[in-house]
Amino acid sequence: MPRTVLETELKNLKSEVLELGQRVGEAMLNSIEALKHRDVEAARKIMEDDKKINEARFEIERATLIVIATQQPLAHDLRLLASILDIAGELERMGDYAKGIAKINILMGDKPLLKPLIDLPRMAEIATDMLRQSLVAFNNDDAETARQIPQRDEEVDALYNQIYRELITFMIQDPKTIDQANYLLWAAHNVERMADRVTNICERVIFTATGEIVELA
């Protein structure tokens, strides 16, 4: 009793999730790059592209529901499909964070950055790399790797705290910088949230592989 149709559908859905993840990761890195260079045009494009991310997420949802309705998946197959619904949602929200950073870039108008961005791009690189690793673990059904990835969230949190302290110092020293500093703080917050959502993906990977529902720190 082979399940050719079901297996093809699962494979297709998995690659759609990977593709969506790839796009989201790029959107995040691009939004930071655009902010770094105060490139408002690039920021507009990122906001526009977010629509495609949302569409891809809904397409994955639609296809997943069809597979559930027509193929009656059970056990690992069923857990995988439930996780795909969840992960697609997480990815879409990460896309919104990238879009949020692009919007901040536009809102900042023609004001220059308070200082060159160094920690923020570093944060985004780590968060994006965590995302990439989580998607590899998802693709390989690898619960062990999924358990390790969230440990890197500490690096992200440490950088966020550093940025936070720095920006508060700016604001105390010169209240005229409050607007600008606040914008940057929001951008950093978005990146920090993205890394948190990678943890959620890792939890789903573990659930798919083992049936175990865990809460990773």
């Binding site: 009793m1 079901l6 998946p73 059970l74 056990a75």
Partner: peptide, 11 residues
């Protein structure tokens, strides 16, 4: 074995 059977990959 159970997994293979209920997911239709038996035999």
């Amino acid at each position: 074995l159970t997994e293979d059977y209920i997911t239709g990959r038996f035999g």
